[in-house]
């Protein structure tokens, strides 16, 4: 692994460690002792399990309606009550993790790939390329994601793909900026000069020599972005964009049920809201832990 060749990519441990772990081992070790990270990971894994296997263990079919038992409050046979079509809220909340946990990570991966490539290029070439691209990226970052999404959806129509692309591309500049500043520091180091002396091509130098050494900041930025992506996906599906009925998605459920909370039907929205809250906080705890592990 070439990342281990250059310890400069990771901050040196504050005290010399007798056991001498590799930099990545060091990170894993500090993650395994971080309460923040483990709590977040636990919450995240809980929802991942629900998304993957939820439909096998929920008591009811999340899409099956039962009009006679519509809007019953939480009770023994319906733990979280039923919604306006008599669908079991508990089953819907469990299975509702699926769409958001597909769309948000895909958007984050797209943002990471696009942002990393862009950041490597502008950080490596600098000069006029960097100036122009950086200005355009800054202009993009000034626009709220919700507004970009509204416009894109007007232009392209609503679908999960649109949401993935919109969120992916609006987060890419932020990742590009992080990668750029990491690359700016790396490109002055000797190993880059050595690669140039060997007449390695620019692409080789960027993606084979520099990329492995800027992985830590990319990893941190990606976990942070995942939190924001979940935020954005949930918001957009609440606004009626992207994930479409009859999916039991949380944001979508809230948007179809919140009109009735004035009537006291709190259970139709509260559990979905708490589910989103727990997932977002979980991912942010993971991001916090990862950030801490790389920066201690």
């Amino acid at each position: 692994m070439s990342a281990t060749d250059t310890p400069a990519s990771l901050p040196a441990p504050s005290a010399p460690d007798a056991t001498r772990r590799s930099p990545w081992g060091e990170v894993l070790h500090s993650l395994s002792r971080s309460g923040t990270f483990l709590t977040g990971l636990f919450i995240l894994l809980f929802w991942v399990v629900c998304a993957l296997f939820g439909q096998h263990f929920v008591p009811y079919d999340p899409l099956e309606s039962d009009i006679i038992n519509a809007l019953t409050p939480p009770a023994a046979d319906h733990w979280f009550g039923t919604d306006q079509l008599g669908r079991d809220v508990f089953s819907r909340v469990i299975v509702g993790s699926r769409d958001i946990l597909t769309v948000a990570p895909l958007a984050t991966i797209l943002a990471t790939i696009a942002g990393t490539a862009l950041g490597l290029v502008i950080g490596y070439f600098r000069g006029i390329v960097d100036d122009i691209v950086s200005r355009v990226l800054e202009a993009f970052m000034a626009i709220p994601v919700v507004i970009i999404a509204l416009l894109a959806i007007v232009a392209l129509g609503t679908s999960k793909i649109t949401v993935i692309v919109v969120i992916g591309l609006s987060f890419a500049p932020i990742i590009a900026r992080t990668v750029r500043s990491a690359v700016l520091a790396e490109r002055e180091l000797d190993y880059v000069a050595a690669a140039k002396l060997r007449h390695e091509g620019a692409l080789h130098t960027m993606f084979v020599e520099i990329l492995p050494n800027v992985i830590p900041p990319i990893l941190v930025e990606t976990t942070v972005r995942l939190g924001y992506a979940i935020f954005a996906v949930a918001t957009l599906s609440f606004m009626g964009f992207g994930i479409q009925p009859p999916s039991p998605d949380w944001g979508l459920s809230i948007s179809s049920n919140y009109g009735m909370i004035g009537g006291g039907f709190w259970w139709t929205v509260l559990f979905d809201a708490l589910a989103i809250a727990s997932l977002v906080i979980g991912v942010n705890l993971v991001a916090d832990g990862v950030h801490g592990a790389f920066n201690d």
Binding site: F238, Y258, G262, A277
Partner: peptide, 19 residues
């Protein structure tokens, strides 16, 4: 800070508006 506005909004509506 990390929670979507509509999530905190719904919870606040439930607490102060409904209950």
């Amino acid at each position: 800070t990390v929670l979507p506005e509509f999530v905190t909004g719904i919870i606040l509506i439930l607490i102060f508006g409904v209950w």
